[in-house]
Amino acid sequence: MSPRRPALIALGVVLAVAAVEWVAAARAYRRAISGADWRALDAHLAAIPGDEAIVLAERWLGPRARLEVPRLRRWSSAAPPDLAGWPRFHVVSLGGEPWTRDLRGEWPEWPLGHVPEASSRDHLGPFTIHHFSPPGAAETVADLLEGRLEVRDARGRCPERAGGFACKQGRVERVVAEVTFTPRRCLRLAVDDGDALTIRAPAALLGDTLRGHLGFDDFNARLRSDAPLLLTIAVDGARIAELTLSDAQGWAAFEAPTPAGRHDLTITVLPTSAGTWGDRGYQDRPLHAPCLELRSLRHPGGAG
């Protein structure tokens, strides 16, 4: 082979890659979404019934999406527990693919089962709206921690105050927490070490399944403690679930069958160590606080 040939090939490859990068630069270095695109999306999503969830495939779009599209400001869009309990839900995607890394974990059967196929799609400028009606999907009967609750710790009843419960050994609040770097609307249980906390939902409306998640708030605390927590759930005094959970499990999902109808629901939480370990040993801050969400679901053809 002529000695000139390898040089020609090398130069040709470099310049060909440069040409490809010119094209890639033209696509990458510009806005993909115009103001008109956002307005069109807003109008489109406003027509979707209020009891159906809408989530973003690309979570990083969240701030602008909430600013431009009021429908996406709901907690079910901004900080959903997962995609269980929605017979119909919708995924707004920019790249065209609904089941992004952000969203795959939101599907309750992932990673053991397949994610569902969209039943239809709408294309709206750069956006694709994927509509899902998964066969056999449960519906949410009640969000049990958003309703009326009675909270007690070892020293007595915790009075309800400013959207939360003020206990003698800590505080229980409905907040948005960061669990595994994802916003989750949940009940944050900021209580002392080794003290059991009891949460009672009297005459809670149950379906055929109780589904919930528990995770630990704040990456700083998770970095400095792996202490587990004991969680017990009872319906009318009968224990239906007992779990030992740690932050290694992330936003840990659990399910238990329940009798349908109105029943007393009691949740007991026992954090073994609420503090964290640092240079100066064990400290009470940052708090390694669990955050819990719990819903009753009803599957098609199920009781309740």
Binding site: A28, D51, W75, L94, V141, A142, D143
Partner: peptide
């Protein structure tokens, strides 16, 4: 290029809408 770098959030501006409770709760 559409990717948020910094957000400015102000109390009272663009308050979050609450989710309506499920129909039969």
């Amino acid at each position: 290029d559409d990717v948020p770098l910094t957000s400015l959030t102000v109390r009272g501006v663009n308050q979050s809408d609450g989710d309506p409770p499920p129909a039969d709760d």
